[in-house]
Amino acid sequence: MKKEAIYKYVKEQYGTEPEYLWKRDPNSAVLRHRNRKWYAVFMCVEGKYLGLPEKGKVDIMNVKCDPEMVSLLTQTYGLLPGYHMNKKHWIGVLLDDSVGEARILDFLDMIYDLIDSEKMKKR
């Protein structure tokens, strides 16, 4: 799944638009929950920094994750510890079609709900 398709989904589902925060890296973007917390970060990273055999850059989406699920999820190809983020709370998802569209959208829905402060207070 490509990031443009993800941007379209989150705009329709949550009213979220990507924010481009870094002048040095104008293609990287952040998605924020309505409570202003980040729930996804998009980057283009050299594969070698992710421990991948591919040469060149790959698109990734870092998503916030329940810490209890991180070690289990990162055992699956296409899911990595969050690059340049707290690896206890973030996972990286390769956007090279190694992770299916349904799974990516499930992650986004799960994460959006996870950081919903009203729902967190009820837990």
Rank of each mutant, 00 (worst) to 15 (best):
Pro81Asn: 15
Glu12Lys: 12
Leu72Trp: 10
Arg32Asn: 11
Gly92His: 06
Val70Met: 07
Ile115Ala: 00
Tyr112Arg: 00
Tyr112Leu: 00
Lys87Ile: 00
Pro18Asn: 08
Arg123Gln: 15
Lys37Tyr: 00
Ile115Gln: 00
Tyr83Glu: 14
Glu17Trp: 03
Cys65Pro: 12
Ile115Met: 03
Lys2Asp: 15
Leu21Cys: 03
Leu21Thr: 04
Trp90Tyr: 02
Leu94His: 04
Lys2His: 14
Tyr7Lys: 14
Leu114Glu: 01
Ile111Tyr: 03
Gly15His: 07
Ser28Val: 07
Asp66Trp: 02
Val45Gln: 04
Pro81Lys: 15
Arg36Met: 02
Met110Gly: 02
Ile91Lys: 04
Leu114Pro: 00
Asn62Tyr: 10
Gly100Lys: 08
Leu94Cys: 05
Tyr49Ile: 05
Gly82Thr: 13
Arg24His: 12
Lys57His: 11
Ile104Asn: 03
Arg103Cys: 00
Ile60Met: 13
Met85Gln: 06
Met120Cys: 05
Trp22Cys: 09
Arg24Glu: 14
Lys88Val: 05
Asp59Phe: 08
Val10Gln: 12
Glu54Pro: 02
Tyr49Pro: 05
Asp66His: 11
Tyr49His: 15
Asp25Thr: 13
Lys23Phe: 13
Tyr77Phe: 15
Asp116Ile: 00
Leu80Val: 14
Gly51Lys: 09
Glu68Thr: 04
Lys122Ser: 11
Lys64Met: 06
